[in-house]
Design a binder for these strands. Structure first.
Lengths: 79, 79
DNA sequence: CACATTTACCCTGTTTCAAGGGAAAATATG
DNA sequence: CATATTTTCCCTTGAAACAGGGTAAATGTG
């Protein structure tokens, strides 16, 4: 277990008690997409990945030194 | 500016002083991909997005209540 | 204002993802 | 252990992303 996307998805699906088929239907993607996601394929389409993540309440965010500095500078409305 | 993926990418590219063309070459993707990313297209391939993010040192992470709880339980080696 | 660079957006051919069916292998459950 | 369920993985058929070329529009710079 090294925190890969595949692991995260598998973990959540199992915890949710869903089969690949069911998750696929809830997310509106094909059953093979789920299988491939859980098996390390990363050439999936981002919109499809997002649909799957939403179903399981997984949030996705970006960060970088530059971006954090920027956010800090611009959230100083109250600071 | 509402923190969309497009915004984050544009922001970083500008800060890096790169043109779309240059970023595309560095990331090993087509120039149109960059243009589309910066203009809100989300049906791009995840592997291509990751290449672009890497060039600009943008990290991507996932979180959810379930996952956080799990990590907390399993990182108590020293706690 | 003239000129250079960059971006927006078209088009074309190629590649590959996506969906869904199917069926053996693996796993769970009575 | 028998049987139901789930997962793995093959196949086929669209559909759409991809790269890269081209050019007008926009933007930047002396």
């Amino acid at each position: 277990m090294q925190n890969s996307l595949a692991d995260i998805i598998l973990f959540h699906r199992k915890r949710s008690g869903l089969t690949q088929q069911e998750l696929a239907e809830l997310a509106g993607v094909g059953k093979n997409m789920i299988y491939e996601l859980e098996n390390g394929k990363i050439s999936v389409r981002l919109d499809n990945l997002l649909k799957v993540l939403q179903v399981m309440n997984i949030e996705l965010d970006f960060h970088s030194p530059l971006w954090e500095a920027f956010l800090r500078e611009h959230s100083d409305a109250k600071r």
